[in-house]
Design a protein around this nucleic acid. Structure first.
Length: 897
RNA sequence: AGGGACUUAGCUCAGUUGGUAGAGCGCCACCCUUACAAGGUGGAUGUCGUCGGUUCGAUCCCGGCAGUCCCUACCA
């Protein structure tokens, strides 16, 4: 063991030695590239564009693993594949990052000015943005990188403008004064979907509002006493007898000099509190609706930054929380505070900044969604777009039914500026694709552009076609629109999926994709959401470094079933790392035994004749055929975890555990040249299929192994995906009958191992065994596979024949299909027979349970009358077999003592 | 409040036309057997949440209840 170690493959698979090199090689060879024009069928996926500020998290890893799996599978199936990568400018997130930088420099974007600030964000983007794109390469994502699109690229911006202008002209975009969700931290509007409701423990304040005529007071309850400064009415239920006479009278609004009317409205719940509600139309969505019904004035008491404005009188300038305290204190002084009770309620928070969202009256731009939603609903109802899993269809349709107009303006600087100009002269709005130099209405040159930018999701909604060159006519769109599948999490069905469908139908007159595959969210081992604040977020880049990208991908894919959330644990990851190692070592073993194998001229098509093949060879080919079929069916049905688990079991429990063991004697024992050559061919072919089958799941290790295979083409990534249709010649060499025979052999070996294990016979000790077949067929099968049995069960001697004397013998009946064998192990002198007695008793007990259950069922005349004949027969057969096995075991037991 | 999902081995989950429950990890025992100790062989473990109904037969279909979770909308 000094200096003369041979250089060969390590017995540990080391992903770090492989992944970077392989990725570069793929990339250099252009395997990820799509053809704009092709005779091959298209398959396209657009990547949900990650935020330019983002870095890879496990959610991406899951999302991308699925997409890359599909893309690689389809590519191997011969499709012209496009996986189109992109990057989102992420208005709020990116602006916040740069604003934080400015803060460190003791300046603000306002001081810098809009133009300079936007320049600054671009600088940031060019320097730090898009780090995630590099991380995606670590995962193995096979995107067509040459086509990377950024949402602020010129082409996309053109598309955005065109869509805005056209929708405006159709009356589907309008500007209006409405109550919207306002984030005081961002000083911007946000959409309903960006509001997260959280349960907050607060208080409910009961306040007296004196009647203006001095004849008493009404008691109202509120969780937000400070908003009373903007009250313009109090409301009661129209049929509430307690207050019927008061409707139409006025109350004196405390802390102000205003009097406000008492109105009646169905909205009021008589049961709740005192049945009297204060109405603040400018700061509550329900009150806003009431206010509109009753034409109440709307008094806005807030500034954009969340402080109280001049309408709040003495409270002006205070923040909401301070004003609340002060208002309550002042009311108490006046004796108008009746009581304060603890109260938990749901409060809207900004999903970006986590500040409390304020309903705020302001002028914003909106998309009228009803006309767009109707066709978007129809294409899902009709099945033109299919959700996978199907259960999300309901969720989608439900949301489309209650959809409201979409507020698309944001008071930010980073994003697509709204292409609308206000005229200084006629005050009218000019909306145009190209910056206008004069007003479209009066021709005046004094135009100023709207300050606001568009919601980031506005450009995202156009993604399936804006990334392909729209509004220009392009080959890319001809070939790849509509895209094939959209892969995303359920959290953005409404933000994104629905809006893409609406926009695709409106502007391309076709759906943007055929299938929407929805996956769950990744949680930690305890089932908590992964988040930075909890500190339980695993960094996929670190995981890849430690365990390998393939192991990570396999871990995620293997548990993605049924669109449910999945729990992530490194323990499981370790298991799949082990699987990669297993595969690696199986390949090492195979390659060692193929070292002297000369690749035939016909390469991939090279096969032995069936007559040259061993039973094990025919068996593994048969099993391969079954697996190829199953995997194809699972993938087609989007059952990725089933496909992954099927392959895992085939590679480990069939190929490694049995086939490689079966063929060892062929390579190690006395050499039969023909047999060896046949087995080598089969081994090379089967390993080749395994590598290809696994490639979309574990691309790196499979490509690395593939490149060392004696039988292969250019690269795993572009080789054909195995399918029974493409593998006819090879699979024809498999035999179901032989496979069944080999399964009997496996069961016999398992029975001997079981006897050995239970009787604690040392693994190193070779023993003698008698096999007593009950029929000629079993006799033949055992005879032909004697070597395998002796090797794998570690036998000194194996007799096949009569059962003979059972004295002091362990006995185990085995049966499969129509073959029966008694496995007999003489224990004399080997072990303490107590263990064997226990073992047999245990086996008998188990069989007796079966007999009891079966007897009961079969003796029920109703069962015989109603159950299908097939089921009855099967039960009877099983009963007989179990009984026969019991008697065999009992006979053995009698001979033991 | 409305809608939906889930409840199966210690843990994570399969179980697709209703016919005597499976995997991985973990656990126990024995083994460094020349691909792999990141391995091998053997083993143990379940009133399939609970109560009813349909059925010859229910983990599976239907209903009630309990628990967990998600979504949507909100009662001031």
């Amino acid at each position: 063991m000094l200096m003369c170690q041979q250089v060969e493959l390590s017995d540990r698979y080391n992903p770090q030695d492989v992944e970077g090199r392989i990725y570069q090689w793929w990339s250099r060879n252009g395997y990820f590239k799509a053809e704009e024009k092709s005779t091959r069928l298209p398959f396209s996926i657009i990547l949900p564009p990650p935020n330019v500020t983002g870095s890879l998290h496990l959610g991406h890893a899951l999302n991308h693993s699925v997409q890359d799996l599909l893309v690689r599978w389809k590519r191997m199936q011969g499709f012209n594949v496009l996986w189109l990568p992109g990057l989102d400018h992420a208005g709020i997130a990116t602006q916040s990052v740069v604003e934080r930088e400015l803060k460190k420099e003791n300046t603000t974007r306002q001081q810098l000015g809009r133009e300079k600030f936007v320049e600054r964000v671009w600088e940031w983007k060019n320097q730090y943005g898009g780090r995630i794109l590099e991380q995606m390469r670590l995962l193995g994502d096979s995107c067509d990188w040459d086509r990377l699109v950024f949402t602020l690229d010129e082409g996309v911006s053109k598309a955005v403008r065109k869509v805005f202008v056209e929708l405006y002209k159709k009356g589907l975009i309008y500007k209006g004064l409405k109550l919207i969700n306002w984030s005081p931290a961002l000083e911007s509007a946000i959409s309903d979907l960006e509001v997260e409701h959280k349960e907050v423990k607060g208080q409910i304040y009961h306040i007296k509002y004196p009647l203006a005529d001095g004849s008493g007071a009404l008691e109202v309850a509120t969780t937000r006493p400070e908003t009373m400064l903007g009250d313009t009415a109090v409301a009661v239920h129209p049929e509430d007898d307690r207050y019927r006479e008061l409707v139409g009278k006025m109350v004196q609004l405390p802390l102000t000099n205003r009097t406000i009317p008492i109105i009646a409205d169905q909205y009021v719940d008589r049961e709740f509190g005192s049945g009297v509600v204060k109405i603040t139309p400018a700061h509550d969505f329900n009150d806003y609706a009431v206010g509109q019904r009753h034409k109440l004035p709307m008094i806005n008491i807030l500034n954009k930054n969340g402080t109280l404005n001049e309408n709040a009188g003495p409270y002006q300038g205070k923040k909401v929380q301070e004003a609340r305290k002060q208002v309550v204190a002042d009311l108490e002084k006046l004796g108008l505070l009746v009581k304060v009770e603890p109260h938990t309620h749901q409060v809207g928070h900004c999903s970006r900044t986590d500040c409390v969202v304020e309903p705020f009256l302001s002028e914003q731009w909106f998309v009228k969604t009803a006309p767009l939603a109707a066709p978007a609903k129809r294409v899902v109802e009709s099945g033109t777009i299919v959700f996978e899993p199907e259960s999300w269809t309901k969720t989608y349709l439900h949301w489309m039914n209650i959809i409201e107009d979409w507020c698309i303006s944001r008071q930010l600087w980073w994003g697509h500026r709204i292409p609308a100009w206000n005229c200084a002269n006629c005050k009218k709005v000019t909306v145009a694709e190209v910056d206008p130099d004069k007003c479209a209405h009066c021709g005046h040159a004094g135009l100023t552009q709207e300050e606001d930018v568009l919601d980031t999701w506005f450009s995202s909604a156009l993604w399936p076609f804006s990334t392909m060159g729209w509004p220009e006519k392009t080959e890319l769109q001809e070939t790849f629109y509509p895209t094939s599948v959209l892969v995303t999490g359920f959290d953005i069905i409404f933000f994104w999926v629905a809006r893409m469908i609406m926009m695709g139908l409106e502007f391309k007159h076709d759906v943007p994709f055929r299938t929407v595959y929805i996956h769950g969210v990744i949680r930690d081992a305890q089932g908590r959401k992964m988040s930075k604040s909890l500190g339980n977020a695993e960094d996929p880049v670190k995981l890849i470094e430690q365990w390998g990208a393939d192991a990570l991908r396999y871990t995620l894919i293997s548990q993605i079933a049924s669109g449910r959330d999945l729990k992530f644990s490194t323990q499981r990851l370790e298991g799949y790392r082990n699987f990669m190692n297993k595969l690696w070592n199986a390949a090492r073993f195979s390659l060692t035994n193929l070292a002297d194998f000369v690749t035939p001229a016909d390469g991939l098509d090279a096969l032995p004749s069936k007559s040259e093949m061993s039973h094990a060879d025919q068996w593994i080919v048969y099993k391969l055929g079954v697996v190829e079929k199953e995997v194809d069916e699972y993938l087609k049905a989007y059952r990725f975890s089933d496909a992954a688990n099927t392959l895992y079991a085939f590679v480990w429990n069939v190929f490694c555990d049995w086939y490689l063991e079966f063929i060892k004697p062929v390579f190690h024992g006395e050499l039969d040249v023909t047999q060896k050559r046949a087995t080598q061919l089969i081994l090379a072919q089967v390993l080749n299929r395994i590598v290809r089958l696994l490639h979309p799941f574990a691309p790196f290790i499979t490509e690395e192994i593939y490149q060392k295979l004696p039988i292969r083409s250019e690269a795993a990534i572009i080789d054909t995906y195995p399918h029974p249709r493409n593998d006819k010649a090879l699979l024809a060499l498999g035999s179901e009958e032989v496979a069944t025979n080999m399964d009997l052999v496996r069961e016999v070996i398992a029975a001997i191992r079981n006897i050995r294990g239970e009787n604690r016979i040392k693994p190193g000790l070779k023993i003698n065994v008698r096999l007593a077949p009950h029929d000629d067929k079993a006799q033949k099968v055992l005879g032909e596979n004697k070597v395998a049995i002796m090797t794998m069960a570690r036998l000194e001697n194996c007799e096949i024949g009569e059962a003979g004397n059972l004295s002091k013998c362990a006995v185990q009946p085995v049966q499969l299909a129509d073959m029966k064998v008694d496995v007999i192990v003489p224990l004399e002198g080997l072990v303490n027979i107590e263990e064997e007695i226990k073992r047999i008793r245990k086996a008998i007990e188990k069989l007796q349970k079966d007999v009891a259950v079966l007897t009961q069922r079969l003796s029920d005349p109703k069962f015989a009358a109603n159950a299908p004949a097939e089921v009855v027969q099967q039960g009877q057969r099983q009963l007989e077999e179990s009984k026969a096995q019991i008697s065999t075991l009992e006979a053995a037991l009698a001979r033991l003592s």
